[in-house]
Amino acid sequence: DAEAWTVDPWSGEERDGCVWGRGALDMKSQVAAEVAAACALAGEGWRPGSGELMVVVTADEEAGATYGAKWLCEEHPDKVRCDVVVNEGGGQPFDFDGRRLQTVCVAEKGVFRFTLSTDGIAGHASLPRIGDNALTKLAPLVEAMRHQPSLQGTPPAEAFVQALGLDVGDLDGALEAAEARDPRVAVLLGPMLGVTLAPTMVSASEKINVIPARAELKVDCRVPPGLGEDDARRAIEEVVGTEGYRLSFAETVVGNASALDTDLMGHIRAFVEREGSADGVAPMVLPGFTDSRWFREAFPDCVAYGFFPQREMDMFEAMPLIHGADERIPIGDLGFSASFFADLAPRVLG
């Protein structure tokens, strides 16, 4: 809604030390910083001592990458084959318990969307007891999903807990401690620590005066990397039980991750330390999706991290702006991130 904006959302206007506009944070800013860094290196006469530096830019990551990174990795892998990928999904700083941390996205959760179906007997709605309403049978299932399944740690999620200075041996206690100190961090941490269930769509009768004989509840289910359909099924049954519905999975995409202890992580930690932009880094699991998945899948030895370093706008200020009104990025952060990319390439490639 353009009327919700302070500026023209398509203007790219510079105001109050920021560039404003749709996609300023997600992720025209990172594209600009990467291209600027590559151009600066080339202009200075730098050439890789080994390997090559590629800037890969595609436009349909949020539409499934059908004609972008997915297509390139599957149909033309030799053109994008790489050992290291620096992508979106991390780099925003946040404060917790007196320390500033900078996120590095090392993993992404999988998607196991499913449908719960209930059956009844149709009838005229003017006589509620003449039928058996399938829709009302969904109500307790929806209510049950106010609660999430038990927590389950994975290496990248436990690395985030450790970065917060919390006890990885007691995940429930760690989440409670995060909630007590900063509920915003708990909102971020909780989904990293296991399967999540979010009911989003209900369908039943097509006419308002007909008691439905069938009802369906669609649920967005996200599963940590390393876990699969069996883990999702156990989590579902833990929350809603095993009776009174039929379960069918509609979309299953296994999560993905890169190793934590890598040269790339070392370069990122060293940059953060040199620049003093944070007190440390926090490897994290992204609940959503980026193009890193396609590179990890196509090239199993590839290390793909999300890291677009910022220091002027913290994570909790930036997140509500993504895809929202008045999306903007500080100009200083554009320069800061470009300096990271320009510094990283010679360190990796010589």
Rank of each mutant, 00 (worst) to 15 (best):
I322D: 03
V56M: 11
D231A: 15
G23Y: 08
L171F: 01
P212M: 13
F249N: 03
A325M: 06
V254M: 03
A159F: 09
S205D: 01
V84A: 10
G169K: 03
I121E: 15
I322C: 03
L349F: 06
L189Y: 04
A32W: 09
R181C: 13
C39V: 15
S205Y: 02
A24L: 04
G51W: 13
Q30D: 14
S29P: 04
G98H: 07
A4I: 05
R184F: 02
R81A: 15
H323Q: 06
F112R: 04
N133M: 00
T262Y: 08
G23W: 12
P287S: 07
R113S: 11
V239M: 08
D326L: 07
R129Y: 10
G98D: 10
E44A: 15
I329N: 08
N133K: 00
R311E: 12
V303Y: 00
V55I: 15
Q30L: 15
G153I: 00
A65G: 03
A177Q: 15
C82I: 04
R22W: 15
P300I: 08
E179D: 08
F295A: 01
D291G: 10
E14G: 04
R222F: 13
Q152K: 13
T66D: 13
R222C: 11
R347D: 02
G306I: 10
L138V: 13
A178L: 11
R269Q: 14
G64P: 00
F307M: 02
K137H: 06
V142L: 11
P309H: 07
E75A: 13
A215Q: 06
P330S: 00
E61V: 06
V223A: 05
S203N: 11
G194Y: 07
A42D: 09
L101D: 07
W46T: 03
R15T: 12
V142R: 07
E327F: 03
A2H: 07
G190V: 06
T242G: 05
V161E: 12
A144W: 05
I208V: 13
G173E: 11
